[in-house]
Computed example of a mutant assay.
Amino acid sequence: MKNLNSIEEFEGLKNGERVLFVFSADWCGDCRFLDPILPIIEEKYAQYEFIQIDRDEFIDLCVNMDIFGIPSFVAYEKGVELGRFVSKERKTQQEIEAFIDSL
């Protein structure tokens, strides 16, 4: 999974084809729980570009997007938010896949 490098990159990506932003942090235990699962999900949903956003590095972006819990997921297509799965709760593979299926 590619990591976000700048706000400008974020703006460009969200205006492109299907992209799924994954908000995370190195210290987040629930985020690390997803580490072995995310490559499986990324492969299954290859129509999306998965981009990881470090919450600590992009705290202003998280505040502006109302991302107050991690891990969280926000999907965009051509600049339009398709949906969000945002909370501070641990997420399972089934919950993440159900979210993506609902988009």
Rank of each mutant, 00 (worst) to 15 (best):
E89F: 09
F33S: 06
A46F: 13
S6P: 00
Y45D: 08
I67M: 03
R18F: 12
F73M: 00
M1P: 02
V86F: 05
K91Y: 00
D101H: 13
L34V: 11
I51A: 03
V22F: 09
K88G: 15
S102D: 04
D56F: 12
D60Y: 11
I70C: 01
E8T: 12
I40Q: 11
Q94D: 15
E9A: 03
K44V: 08
I67C: 03
G83F: 02
I100P: 01
V19K: 04
R90W: 12
E42M: 11
L103I: 15
N64I: 05
K78Y: 15
E42N: 11
Q93C: 08
Q94Y: 13
T92W: 09
R55L: 07
E42D: 14
C31P: 09
Y76K: 00
I41K: 05
G79N: 07
E42R: 07
E8Y: 06
Y45R: 11
V86H: 07
L82A: 00
A98D: 15
F33Y: 15
N5D: 04
W27N: 09
E11V: 08
K88C: 07
D56C: 06
S102T: 10
F58T: 02
G79W: 04
N3A: 04
A46R: 14
E8G: 14
M1E: 06
C31G: 03
V86C: 05
E17W: 02
I70P: 02
F85E: 05
D60I: 15
E77T: 05
Q93S: 13
D101F: 11
G69V: 15
E49W: 06
R32E: 06
K91N: 04
S24I: 10
L82F: 00
D101P: 09
M1D: 06
D56Q: 10
F23Q: 06
E17R: 07
E57F: 10
L61E: 06
Q94E: 15
E89Q: 12
L38T: 14
G83E: 01
E81M: 13
I53Q: 01
S87N: 11
F85Y: 14
K78G: 02
E8L: 08
I67G: 02
Y48V: 10
C28V: 09
L82Y: 01
S102H: 07
V80L: 05
V80G: 03
E9Q: 13
I100E: 00
G29Q: 14
S87H: 08
K88V: 09
C62F: 12
A98S: 09
D54M: 05
D35H: 10
I59C: 05
I40L: 10
F99H: 05
I70G: 03
I67W: 01
Q93M: 14
I59H: 04
A25T: 12
K14D: 00
I53E: 00
D56M: 07
E57G: 03
W27S: 00
D56L: 04
V86P: 01
F99K: 06
L13K: 10
P36R: 12
L4Q: 05
D101N: 13
K91D: 06
D30E: 11
I37G: 02
S6E: 04
Y76V: 03
S24R: 10
P36H: 13
E97V: 10
S24T: 15
M1T: 14
G83S: 03
I100S: 00
C31T: 14
E89M: 13
R90Y: 11
K91R: 12
E9K: 03
K44D: 12
D66T: 15
E49F: 08
M65N: 08
L103D: 02
L82T: 04
S72C: 01
S6H: 10
F85L: 08
G12L: 03
N64P: 00
